[in-house]
Design a protein around this nucleic acid. Structure first.
Length: 286
DNA sequence: CATATGTCCTGAGAGC
DNA sequence: TGCTCTCAGGACATAT
């Protein structure tokens, strides 16, 4: 999302409005009239990101913080439907005349922050950024936690930026059982989790995200991502594991969220986990 | 303090 | 066909 918004750097905000929407009005703060007044005639100087939040920096040190949550989209193109259009920033002086926030389920939020202090207030609870995780950073924070590692990876105060889909993919690539307690993980497992986190997220960014069966996720130009075609385990319960090509991918529920994994390739301990670190097995089949 | 649960929301799909 | 029910999961508030 952040990358897709780069074209509006340098544009001027002419107005902020809430389009007519039959659904519940979006949660904006401050209220829309103050939001509009404080944004008018400001120049967008940079687009940033803190965890999963998109940050639009204005020239007077204000910042628009967008939290898309499940179904929120930030768009420079026409939205999928007019019905769920929640917020419109009218722009001038650049290639796009509007920046939209569209949200089918309406869980997302948009906040206007004044300066670094309020940014800190809103982001101070975020952990290390997912694209910058280190094995030591993860281990220091979680080595005494009794939680299942998959649940801990979803905690944004531990690592900021991993969602449910990516937690499953990361642990599969790392070869770690999602049910394993954090306080039972070895240094080598933390190493693999950290590198798998960076690998999976960089892949996902390369393919512009995952547009799942509900078709919701789109980039800033309303185009689908293609990372769903590269998912190793997410949503693939019952299919054979892409690594061992034998065991079926299993679906379980942890903390009210679906988890997908291979019970053979993601064992807590044992010879399989040890062998895996030595040589990533080439398939002898197929 | 650490961890778990309830809450919000809409559309899709199941079951009858 | 149309109704009711369940589920998906982000972050935060509240409970244990």
């Amino acid at each position: 999302m952040r990358r897709g918004l780069a074209p509006v750097i340098g544009s001027r905000i002419e107005a902020v409005e809430r389009p007519p929407c039959r659904r519940r009005p979006i949660a904006v703060s401050p209220r829309i009239d103050a939001f509009d007044r404080r944004c008018r005639n400001r120049i967008i100087t940079q687009i940033g990101r803190r965890g999963k939040r998109v940050m639009i920096y204005l020239h007077d040190a204000q910042i628009i913080a967008i939290e898309p949550r499940m179904t929120g989209l930030v768009l420079l193109a026409d939205p999928p439907t007019e019905d769920h259009l929640r917020l419109r920033l009218r722009l001038s002086g650049g290639p796009h005349h509007e920046l939209l926030f569209w949200d089918r389920r309406g869980l997302g939020t948009v906040r206007l922050l004044s300066g670094e202090e309020s940014v800190r207030a809103i982001t101070s609870r975020l952990g290390i950024d997912a694209l910058a995780v280190t094995p030591g950073g993860l281990r220091d924070r979680l080595r005494h936690s009794r939680r299942a590692v998959k649940v801990a990876l979803l905690d944004q105060t531990v690592v900021a930026g991993i969602g449910n889909l990516y937690a499953a993919e990361i642990l599969f690539v790392a070869g770690v059982d999602p049910r394993a307690r954090c306080d039972r993980l070895s240094q080598s497992q933390w190493d693999r989790i950290a590198s798998a986190t960076r690998l999976v997220l960089q892949e996902a960014i390369h393919y512009e995200g995952s547009t799942l069966a509900d078709g919701t996720y789109r980039n800033a130009l309303n185009r689908q991502g293609s990372y769903q075609n590269h998912h190793r385990v997410y949503g693939r319960q019952g299919e054979r594991c892409p690594r061992c090509r034998e065991a079926p991918i299993r679906r379980i529920v942890q903390a009210q969220r679906s988890t997908f994994f291979c019970a053979v390739c993601q064992r807590k301990t044992g010879i399989h986990a040890l062998l895996r670190t030595v040589a990533p097995s080439p398939s002898t089949r197929g």
